[in-house]
Nucleic acid binder design. Structure first.
Length: 465
RNA sequence: GGCGCCGUAGCCAAGUGGUUAAGGCGGAGGUCUGCAAAACCUCUAUUCAGCGGUUCGAUCCCGCUCGGCGCCUCCA
């Protein structure tokens, strides 16, 4: 059974089959590194991550490219405002992006091409477009001539025939022949300061969209499997990518286009004006954990708008705690061997998990399968029907799913902190003497250090809060 | 104005033309326990924004209304 994905190109859910058997070539639009990425950006990045992880889970070899836009109006403007060289300025936010990526357990992809390191590739793409008659030059800038690409607008389901020359020309694009045309190569202006490249196209810098066409094709070929991005990129960015790539090669560019919906805050799109703008760092400062953020970003289907709230983070904390406690309870199980019933349960829930995610990455029922499994096994443990030897199978299953979800640290459950164990031993003695005050005092003391105790039949166990 | 999405329990969120409308968080009760925690058990939507229509039968299909959100050359 094939994975089914919603393809923006056809506006339908389709069976996914890569161009080359067993291999997926994937490109996703990355951040513009002009400041710290916000959680709306990370919703898209977490979505790409789950897509990539799930493709791998289903046996595909994935080659994934994500661009870093390190030259554009904003990076130039803001670096100039600070008086810092562009490279130094963007390096700072590339670093921040990778830090946040790691905190959110987003897997590194195969290649992170930066725009500034691929100027010759972009120039070559523009030259190919010129050879095929898709461009014109005006006042040193090179433009894409929309008239030469008849299907322009179709990808976004937009009828652009009303937007003709002269209709909406603003002051800084007066040299365009048609308001719908977009710039491929932008001639140097004094505002660009030291940011320019001398190329056959003249002194200047690349336009907004060309990097994705040039870099994706460089690493993935002229036609590749999946291209992802946020819905806001459908138009104009992805439409322009298609025009550029297909205009240059005459071949289909991308086979499956996937778009993640917006993250909203207070029911509205995140924006600085509304003051509902959050970075991961903002949220961590409020005492939430990266995994809680990942859970929230992951738990809503990617084509559904997600209204971000702090209540959701709190709910995520509870759900994650249930998963972690479950892993520990399995580790501490001391019943009889489960036998066949365990294999049956594993198989049944695995089927549900895969069937759900095969269906356009339908995450909710997949998580439902995980939590139902937690209850299935919890019941076995409570009934004394799970043995310590069964741990391998159960945690193995959890580990499998975690390859896709990336929500729990299963290796983190080390129970060997000597100091804590000594405290527990003191408390156990106190309890043996019915000295409840002393016992509670020790428990409280540990709690202040973030250690929670639980008294089980087999003895006291602990966990970090 | 054009295009599109959404409205399911206190909150989040699946789902199906007809057996019990997943799951998570929260809440209530119970078992266990010195107490607590975890775990397990039970309960927490006679109902799926509203009104019509199609149908033997609709939360699911169609239409309208109301409400929310996004895109239509900054944007994940």
């Amino acid at each position: 059974m094939a994975i089914r994905l919603y393809n923006t190109l056809t506006r339908r859910i389709e069976d996914f089959h890569p161009l080359e058997n067993g291999k997926v070539r994937l490109y996703t639009c990355g951040p513009t590194v002009y400041n710290v990425a916000h959680i709306g950006n990370f919703r898209a990045f977490v979505f790409y991550d789950m897509l990539r992880r799930y493709l791998k889970y289903r046996g595909y070899e994935v080659f994934h490219v994500m661009n870093l836009t390190d030259v554009d109006d904003k990076t130039i403007r803001d670096s100039a405002a600070e008086g810092v060289p562009l490279q130094d300025y963007t390096a700072r936010y590339k670093k921040a992006f990778f830090e946040d990526r790691d905190a959110l357990r987003i897997e590194p992809v195969e290649v992170y091409p930066a725009a500034t390191e691929h100027i010759p590739d972009m120039v070559r793409t523009i030259e190919r477009l010129a050879e095929r008659g898709h461009t014109y030059v005006a006042e040193g800038s090179t433009y894409f001539k929309i008239d030469t690409f008849p299907s322009y607008g179709k990808f976004a389901n937009l009828d652009l025939s009303g937007t003709r020359a002269g209709a909406r020309i603003t002051s800084d694009e007066y040299e365009k022949e048609d308001a719908r045309d977009f710039v491929l190569w932008k001639a140097w202006t004094p505002e660009d300061g030291p940011v320019f490249w001398d190329t056959p196209l003249g002194r200047g810098r690349p336009g907004w969209h060309i990097e994705c066409s040039a870099m994706s094709q460089k690493y993935l070929g002229e036609t590749f499997d999946i291209h992802g991005g946020g819905v806001d990129l459908i138009f104009p960015h992805h439409q322009n990518e298609i025009a550029q790539a297909e205009g240059a090669t005459g071949k289909p560019f991308v086979r499956y286009w996937l778009h993640s919906e917006f993250l909203l805050v207070d029911g509205q799109k995140m924006s600085k004006c509304l003051g509902n703008f959050y970075t991961l760092r903002d949220i961590l400062e409020r005492g939430y954990k990266p995994m809680e953020v990942r859970y929230v970003l992951l738990a809503t289907h990617y084509r559904q708008q997600l209204n971000f709230t702090f209540d959701a983070l709190t709910a995520a904390r509870g759900a994650l705690e249930r998963l972690r406690d479950f892993a520990r309870n399995v580790h501490l199980a001391g019943g009889n061997e489960a036998g066949e019933i365990l294999d049956e349960t594993n198989e049944r829930r695995e089927k549900e998990f895969v069937a759900s995610l095969d269906d356009d990455l339908n995450i909710a029922p997949a998580l439902g399968a995980v939590f139902n499994y937690v209850r299935d096994i919890g019941r076995l443990i409570a009934d004394g029907k799970l043995a310590q030897q069964d741990e391998v199978k159960v945690l193995g299953k959890l580990r499998d799913w975690n390859k896709v979800l990336g929500l729990i640290d299963l290796e983190d459950e080390t129970m060997t902190d000597i100091e804590v164990l000594q405290m527990i031993e003191l408390r156990t003695q106190a309890r043996a003497n019915w000295d409840w005050d002393r016992a509670d005092q020790i428990r409280l003391e540990l709690e202040r250090k973030g250690i929670v105790l639980e008294d089980r039949r087999g003895g006291t166990v602990w966990k970090r809060k």
